[in-house]
Each structure stands twice: as structure tokens, then as C-alpha cells.
Design a protein around this nucleic acid. Structure first.
Lengths: 206, 206, 206, 206
DNA sequence: GATGAATGAGAATTCATTCAT
DNA sequence: TATGAATGAATTCTCATTCAT
């Protein structure tokens, strides 16, 4: 059993207080406008205390980003690990990401507040772009996926996932299923109707 | 023949000088770190002169973004206008965007410098996300595209285009064709192998 | 008959335009906040033109003040010149000043905008404190006035006149007569009750 | 005995340092020319520290003014409270004001530095013009003072007091008595010669 | 570790004034 | 003389960070 002193508990507690405050502040006013004082002000702590836990504003941002990445990435990896088909691989990745994105919408908002920060880098890190690329590579080698440019596919999937998550956030949409299906279908089979089936489908009422 | 006084020439010239300097500075050191002084310092002008043309750093950023949007959006719209098929529609959009992205890689870099600014908002504006959504809607109504969620598709395409453009930038890749084909194929037909062909293909050595 | 070229006319006209604009601007936003640009902006002239007529903002202020002084001071002097009694001397001074103050309330407001400039110096100059002191001195020597400290009396009268004018401005009061009578009575006979009551009251123990 | 931590002491001490420095700087170079840097430069503190105590230069000015007002106004009110006669009322007010004005000549100079700030508003606030008006009103109702326009009388007294204080400052005169007597006599009985002498004097050739 | 006042470098911005046209 | 863009010194103010308590 792990021993944890009062002090350590407090220490972690304060760190959490600051991270939560930062998430709120970044989400509300954006990374750029937010100041360390704004963050600490949303807390019962004192200015100086901030620096016992983080070295700078950048540092909290990074911590927030990494925290999210550490939560999300294993989920996505696990989904892909157990994938038996291209469908499992792609759909599992989107489903896990979007589910988490809905649960952690505040965190996503904080990391990519409108008119703010969120570089491609952030998205890649949070979603584990490198993991994804490697997993795609492996899947290709295992014959699970067709031979595509793994880096491009990983990038494209990250782009799709984040933009769709943003739309969901704007729509206050919590239903992950339809969004996931949209993403998966897009990546797996695209939007073009099969040449010969197209008319049939159209007449079928779609 | 257009008449233009010396004065007007200078005025427009200075505005351009500042915009170009800002592009370079943003691209090199990122939006956040860049100061108005850095920008004006990359120029032969005086501090105060900056404020004859722009109200703030934010303002130059916006101008840079809008300038790019004004260049790109009509190109994409034109491609879609003349599209006779889903393939034309999607491929034309990606080709035009990526071609321009390569030509204006400095501008893109300035707007979305690593670890910097570039929000979803910026991407949507530059690529004309709203135009795209409306054009998709119209294309669906005309039977050119299958019936999908236009907003999601527009978002997904923006996501794909920007992430792929970023990869190209990192790879110093100027060949638009293959990147465009990747994007178009992805969105049109996806990466899944046709069900029955999959085994055949696999055995074919892919 | 005085000859005046077109140019001179224009020159004086522009000077006037600037002075009038400055009066309005000072009155509205106060001397301190007002900038040369604000002044010239309330004009159809260009920035540079300002400096053909005035050396600085201070300079316009001074011109405005002196213009008012040049109007007011001779009037007050004239009143005192023709005074046959202490009453004429005092009442004439107040009447002339307050009459002019009402007519030129915008100028007074410009010179002494609330929370602004207007030093004792300005008041003294506008009302001609030195003239007043000398005239009082002369009047004392001539036996028209009792032997008082001329400098103090001049100062006191300036203080009374300006504060009362300010009250009139705040009350939007254009009736000079009652205000003038108040000032004159105060300075000439004070507010104490008549002599015989005075003793009675005094003996009454107050 | 009052307990006060080291920290609190320092805090109040710094506020005082800044106020004192501001008084000196305003008095010496005038409000307008004075910069926050000048003020903080007359101190051992750092620039930023200024803003821990005051929001702007205007703010220090206001604090200086209010501090003086808080000192002076109760003194004047007390004098008037205990007044048994019109003479007590008027003379007490002037005596208390001028006494304090001499003691705090630096403060007065700071607030109304020649060619500077000092609006009617400042004078009214420092001397408590509203208190004075109300007290006059009450005194009239109690029969202590003749029935005059209380607002005008208050304004006039403020005008007299400040102009006379200014003269005293210029004369380096510390003798309050004669100045007070001048003001009181002026307001109470005026400068006019007793009625019968007046004609005699007039016929003497003025 | 917590506190919060002090620090001071540095950013944004203003604005009086100049000067080429 | 009029114009108005350019100039850049000067000023205000912010804010990350330090540090004595």
C-alpha cells in the first residue's frame, strides 16, 4: 500500500487546483490573453505558489495537453491493438477519440480556444499522431490496411477527428455514434457512391 | 493606364513592407513571441509608422490571414463551380488548396507557426469553410454528391487539407499531385480495399 | 482703409478655425486629454497646418486665454475708470466680468474645464488681476476705497468672480444682475446684519 | 496597543513614500509635466510598485487631494459647529483653512501648481464646499446668518480663501492672523466705508 | 511550502513635431 | 502655405518572476 503524507496530498491537490483553474481560464479567455495571475486568481492560492508547481504559463499549458494525451493515447492504442479489421482499426480510433473529446470538451476547448494557440503540434500530441502513424505502418505490414502513406493518413485522421470534434462542441452534440460513423465511413470508403450502385442507391431513396 | 501619385505608391508600399515583414517574423519566431518592434525592425520604417497602417499585432495577423483567404477562396470556388463530377469537386478543391499552400508556404507558416496561434477559426477562414459547406450542400441538392452532413464534410476536408499541407511543408515537398491524389482518394473512396478484392490484393503482394 | 490680401484673410481665417476648434475641444474633453490631433481633427485643416499658426497645444491655450483677457480686461478697466464711488468701482467690475463670462461661457469652460488646467494664474490673467490691484491701489490713494491690502482684495475679487461665474454656468443661469449684486454686496458691505442689530445680537451673546 | 505586522507596515510605508514623492514632484514641476517615472524615481521603489498602490497618475493626485480634504474639512466643520455668531462662523472657517493651508503649503502647491491642474472641483473638494453650503444653510435657518444664497456664499468663500492662500504662499507669509482678518472682514462687513464718511470722502475730490 | 508585495524588463501605444511633396 | 505620412522619443502599464517573511 502506498503511503502518502498530508503534505504530498496537499501538493498534488494544489497542482490539480491550478490545472483545473488554467483549463477554465484558457477555455474562457484563450491562452494568449490569460495571465498567470488570472489562473492563480481563479484559485485560493497565492501568486508565488504557482511557481512551486509550474515554471511558466507555457508549462501549465503543456501539462494540460500532456495530461489529456496521457489519457487519450492509450485508449486509442488499445482499440487499434485489438482491431481485427481495417474497420475496427479506423472506427475504434475515431470512436475512442470522439468519446473522450466529448467527456473532456472543456480540456479540448482550453487547448484550442478559438483564435488561439492550438498548433498542429498540439493536435498531433494529444491524439498521438506518432503512435497512429506507427500503428498504421504496422497494420499495413500486417495486411490489415491497404498500402498508403502512413504519415499522411495519420495526419488526415487527426485533422478529421479534431475538426469534427470542434463541430460537435459547437453543436453541443453529445451523440458520438453518428459522428464516429461519419468519420469512419469517410476514411474507409469515402463519400463517392460505388459507380454502378450509384443509381440503384439513389433510386433506393438515399 | 492607372494613375498613382508618389504618395499613394509609398503608402501602399509601406503597408506591403509591414505585411511582408510580419509574415517573415511570424513564420520565424511565431506569433506569440513576435513583437510589433520585431516586425517594424525587419523594416526600414519607424515604430510609429506601424500604427499608421495597423492597429495592433492582432490586426496584422488578421490582415495576413484575410489576404491569404481572399487569394485562395475564389480559386477553390471556381474549381467547384466547374466541377462535373464528385471527383472534380473534391479533387479540384484539394488541388487548388495544396497548390496555393505550396506557393504560399511562408504565409501558411506565419499563420500557423508551430506551437502557435492557428485556431480552427483561422483554418476555416483561410480555406473558406463556409463556402465549402454551402457548395457541398448545393452539390448534394444537384445530385453531384451523396447525401452527407455538409458541415461535417466541410470540416473534415479542411482538417485533411491543412494537416496534409503541414506534412508537405515539413517534408519540403513541392509535388502537389501525389498529395492531392491522397486527399481526394481518401475523401472519395477511402482507404478500405473493396471487400472481395482485399484478399486478392493482399496476395498480390501489397 | 486697411488693405488685406486674400492670403492674409485666409491666414487669419485658419487661425480662427483652429482657435474655435480648440475652444470646443478643451471645453468638451479638457485640456489635458485634448491632443493637437483632436483640435485639428475638428477642423478641415491638415496636421502640419497647425504648426503654421501655433507652436504647441500650450500655445493655443495661451492664445485662447489671452484673447479672452484682451476682451475682458479693457471692459473692466473702463468700468473702474468711470467709477465715482466704491460701489461703482466694485459693482462695475463684477457686472462687466459676469456679463462677459456669460457671453463667453464656452471660453471660460475651455480654460477651466472641470478637473483640468485653470490655475490661479489663468484666472488672474483673464480677469486682469494686476490691473485690478493697481486700480484698487489708485482708488485707495484717491480716497475712493478704504485702505485695504490691494493685492489681497484683488485676489479675493478674482476668486469670488470666478467661483460665482462657475456656479452660474452650472445653474445655466444667464441673469447677471442678481449674481452681480450678490458679489458687490458681499465685497462692499458683507453679509453681517446691520450695525445696530449687530450690537444687539452681539450683546445677546452669540 | 495596535498590532501591525512587518508586512503591513511596509505596505503603508510604501504608499506614503509614493504620496510624499508625488507631492514633491507635483509641487516642483507641476502635475502635467510630472510622469509616473518622475514620482517613482523620487523614491527607492521600482516602477511596477507604483501600480500596486495607485492605478494612474490621476489616481495619486486624487489621493493627495482627498487626503488633504479629509484633514481640512473636519477642522472647518468643527469651527462652524461651535460658532456662536456670524463672526465665529466666518472667521473660524477662514482661520482654520488658512492655518492648515500654511502648514500644508506643499500639498496645496502640489494640487494647484502654477499653470497647472487645480480645477474649481479640486478647490471645492479640498475646502469642503458642500459642507460649507449646508452649514451656511443651517446657520441661516438658525438665525445665525442673514438670508443669503448659500451656494453662492460658499463658492465665494472658497474663492476668497484659495486666492488669499495663494497670495500668502507667494509672499512666504506665515502670519495667518492678518490674512484671516482680511477675509473675515471682507465677507462679514465688506470694504465700504461707513455711510456718512463716504459722502465726505467723495466730496473730497475723488 | 505558502504567501503576496516588489521587482524591472519590456511591450504597446501615443503624439508632438518634422518635412518631402 | 497646405498637406498628411513618417518619425521616434517618451510614457504608460503589464506581467512573469523573485524573494523575504
Amino acid at each position: 500500500m502506498e503511503f502518502r503524507s498530508k503534505r504530498t496530498q496537499t501538493k498534488e491537490h494544489n497542482r490539480r487546483l491550478i490545472l483545473d483553474a488554467a483549463r477554465g481560464v484558457f477555455g474562457r479567455q484563450g491562452y494568449r490573453t490569460a495571465t498567470v495571475r488570472d489562473i492563480i486568481g481563479a484559485t485560493s492560492l497565492a501568486t508565488g505558489t504557482f511557481y512551486n508547481y509550474f515554471r511558466s504559463k507555457e508549462d501549465v499549458y503543456t501539462a494540460l495537453r500532456d495530461e489529456l494525451a496521457v489519457e487519450i493515447r492509450p485508449l486509442l492504442r488499445a482499440e487499434r491493438k485489438r482491431a481485427q479489421s481495417a474497420d475496427d482499426f479506423i472506427a475504434g480510433t475515431f470512436r475512442a477519440f470522439l468519446t473522450h473529446a466529448v467527456q473532456r470538451s472543456a480540456s479540448l476547448a482550453a487547448l484550442g480556444a478559438p483564435e488561439e494557440h492550438t498548433s498542429s503540434g498540439t493536435r498531433m500530441i494529444v491524439m498521438g499522431g506518432d503512435d497512429l502513424r506507427r500503428d498504421i505502418q504496422a497494420a499495413i505490414e500486417n495486411g490489415l490496411l491497404a498500402d498508403v502513406d502512413a504519415e499522411l493518413l495519420a495526419a488526415a485522421m487527426v485533422g478529421v477527428a479534431f475538426e469534427v470534434a470542434e463541430i460537435m462542441r459547437r453543436r453541443h452534440q453529445a451523440d458520438v455514434n453518428s459522428a464516429e460513423r461519419f468519420c469512419s465511413e469517410l476514411v474507409l470508403r469515402g463519400i463517392a457512391l460505388p459507380a454502378m450502385t450509384r443509381q440503384a442507391t439513389a433510386s433506393a431513396g438515399l
